Simulated scan of single mutants.
Amino acid sequence: MTATGASSPDSARASVQIALELPDDVGSLTVRPLARSDAAAVTALMAGCEQHDVGTVLIEEADIVGDWQRPAFDLAAQSVGVLDEDRLVAYAEVYKGRWADAAVDPRYRGRGIGTALSRWTRRVAARDGGTLVGQPVPGDSPGERLLAALGYRTLWTSWVLELPAGTAITPQPIPQGYAVREPRDDADLRAAWTVNEDAFLEWSERPRASFEEWAATVSRRPGYEPWQLRLMVGPDDEVVGMAFVIVSSGCAYVDKLAVRRDQRGRGLARALLVDAFEVGRAHGGERSELSTDSRTGALGLYEKVGMQVTSVWRHWAADAVDGDEPDRGR
């Protein structure tokens, strides 16, 4: 597996390891690339940050494992961990030279670790052919204030919404000839991927994800069962819409929702959403969640079915920076 950027880097650039340079006064902290065995530690780190910053935990280990098994992600070259003895206290990763994730244990903030991680992500993005790198952070959080101070800019706003436990799920009629079912075979999975990618690429500025990348976080995600992938099919049984539901800790999270452009305006998206709530509740998800952002224009749809905004996130980004170029951050 090789590091893959927004445009494929040549082998010489991909082989260059980017060192994380911590401030001199952080003590005996050590740095190393992450390994797959670190998934639980990264989950615990991110959960602690989420609890501290937004008051709830959104991450689970299967999210990390699914992301790390995407074919285009090289964990050894595109991740870094900061450890205090054997305990992971900070980490960062960069996917395809554009999409970063980073977290610092609240007890270790204020020491310049976050600034060092920012510098590292910008250099990794440049190495992998990217020109812009960024990540979502909770609104009005220490992470947001740090990125603003480092010269990052906001590109869009995201919202996490919840349908509280006990809320009545209003049935949504499905047009005659249409139905919702589970996938039956690989052809159904590929049809769902096509609908999903076509819909999201209408507004998302990124290369098309391969089927293998998509499947890594859907049908190959740890614990996946066919009932989680909801397919809206038309009179000819062709897949025209899809939703993907993850149930964890009593919450049904609607991770993906898409309807083919030529099939919109028939109530199919709302019917899929209601179906996702119902099937999630049937499998232990008493409350339901999803996220959307300002690029989609879908916030009103979710509020109309009784969902409530529980947290606000913003995507902050900065230019990738080659190692030889002076860092413009602080």
Rank of each mutant, 00 (worst) to 15 (best):
P142L: 00
P136R: 04
P136M: 10
D185G: 05
G166R: 10
R184Q: 14
P222N: 08
L189A: 08
E225D: 12
G134P: 12
G223F: 12
A165P: 01
G139A: 15
V133Y: 04
D188Q: 04
L147V: 07
P183A: 02
A168I: 07
N196V: 00
Y178D: 01
L146K: 05
S210N: 12
S141R: 05
W193V: 06
P164A: 06
G151E: 01
T170S: 11
L201S: 01
P175C: 02
E202M: 08
A216G: 05
L150A: 11
A191G: 08
Q135A: 11
Q176R: 10
E212Q: 07
S219C: 13
Q172E: 07
D198M: 05
R206E: 11
R153N: 10
W156M: 08
R220S: 01
W214F: 15
W159Q: 08
S158Y: 05
P142I: 01
D185K: 05
V137Q: 11
N196K: 09
F200Q: 05
P138V: 03
W203L: 03
N196E: 09
R208A: 11
P164Q: 09
W159S: 08
F200M: 06
A187S: 12
G177F: 04
Y152D: 12
T157H: 09
Y152K: 00
V180R: 00
I169T: 14
R221H: 11
I169V: 15
W193M: 09
M232P: 03
E212Y: 02
R145Y: 15
R206M: 12
D186M: 15
G223N: 07
E225I: 06
E205V: 10
Q176A: 14
E144G: 15
A187H: 10
P222D: 11
G166V: 08
L201C: 02
D185A: 14
T154S: 15
P136T: 01
T167M: 08
G177H: 04
P138H: 10
T167V: 04
R184W: 13
R208C: 07
W156A: 01
D198V: 03
R208V: 07
A209L: 14
W193I: 05
W227V: 09
V133T: 04
Q172N: 02
P183D: 03
G139S: 15
I174A: 01
E197G: 04
L201A: 02
W227F: 03
Q172V: 02
S219Y: 11
R190G: 05
G139Q: 13
E162Y: 10
A209H: 11
L231D: 01
D140Q: 13
L150C: 08
G143C: 07
S141H: 07
P175Q: 02
V218Q: 13
F211H: 06
L189S: 06
D185L: 10
L229S: 03
L147S: 10
Q228T: 07
L163I: 10
E202D: 14
L189E: 09
A148S: 13
E213D: 14
P222W: 12
R153S: 14
S158M: 13
R190Q: 15
A149I: 10
T167F: 07
L146E: 06
P226C: 08
V218W: 12
T170I: 13
V160I: 14
T217I: 15
L155R: 09
R230E: 03
E213C: 06
Q176P: 13
S204N: 09
P164L: 05
G139V: 13
A199H: 00
E144M: 15
E182P: 01
L147E: 14
R206N: 02
L189T: 00
